[in-house]
Amino acid sequence: MTILNEFSLEDLQTCHLSLIWKWRNQEHIRSMMYNSNFISWSEHIQWYEAYQLQSKSIVKIFTFKGKPLGMVSINQINDNDRSCYWGFYIGEKDSPKGLGIFMGYLGLDFIFDVLKLQVVYGEVITFNEKSRLFHQKLGFSLEKHIEKSLTERNEVVNIFLMAITKDEWAKRKEPLQQKMKGIEI
């Protein structure tokens, strides 16, 4: 059994709601989101109820040995051009370093192999250098640089639009598996 088998992506359930609310309101996560304001419980429940009505969004809980550690969000699923956008984070502060690569791997594998999509886009606020480098490690390339007006932040921010195709993922997948074998958790 490889270390990768210790990780999984599980469907979002109501039992995860309080944990995700806690994660979403941590400063190190909120500060990198489009809306960096504190999320009230009622706003969180509204988000969940809206998610349940969506057919173009999927939320997965990233686990290690059954313990929830983070979240992968797949949204704006476009059946015509077989694309989506994604977001993710490790929510548990005490998680071992290096888990993100496993979460990214499982997320992309799910998107390309299960959902059968062709392109994944990620939007990265330019000051989130860690996320930009993470995307590049997974095989994403910079598509374009955009300015986005965020009313929640009352500012205009610069965004890197990054993308990876199914073909590029196929090239990156095996080398990432080899790299993950050397990571000690």
Rank of each mutant, 00 (worst) to 15 (best):
W47D: 06
K93F: 03
D94I: 02
T2P: 07
D109N: 15
V156K: 12
F160A: 09
M162S: 03
N128W: 03
E43N: 00
V119Y: 08
F110W: 13
S40L: 10
F64G: 09
Q26S: 10
R82E: 05
T165V: 13
E147Q: 13
P175L: 03
K65A: 09
A50D: 08
K93T: 14
L115G: 04
S36A: 15
T14N: 14
R153Q: 06
T14Y: 06
W23F: 08
I90E: 05
G107E: 02
I146A: 09
W21K: 14
L53H: 11
F38D: 07
V157C: 09
S31R: 13
F7H: 08
G66Y: 05
E155H: 04
D79W: 03
C84P: 08
Q54T: 04
E174V: 14
L108R: 13
G91K: 07
H145I: 15
N35H: 06
I74T: 15
E49D: 06
Y85R: 12
M103W: 14
I77N: 04
F62I: 01
V114M: 04
K60M: 03
L142V: 15
R172M: 13
I74V: 15
I74F: 01
D81I: 15
S31W: 02
F110Q: 00
V120A: 14
K116Y: 09
N35P: 00
R24V: 05
Y51N: 02
Y51S: 02
G100Q: 05
D11I: 06
E184Y: 07
E184T: 08
W169I: 14
E143W: 02
F102N: 00
L4I: 15
K22H: 13
F64D: 01
W21L: 15
I101S: 12
K22Q: 11
L53K: 15
P68W: 02
E92I: 09
G87Y: 13
Q13T: 07
E147A: 08
K130C: 02
I45C: 07
G100L: 00
D81S: 08
E155A: 15
S18W: 02
F127T: 11
R153H: 06
F88C: 08
L108P: 00
E27A: 15
S149F: 10
I159A: 05
M180C: 06
E152G: 01
L117H: 07
W41R: 07
E184V: 06
E147Y: 09
W21Y: 11
S83L: 06
L150K: 01
I146T: 12
L4W: 01
V72E: 03
C84D: 03
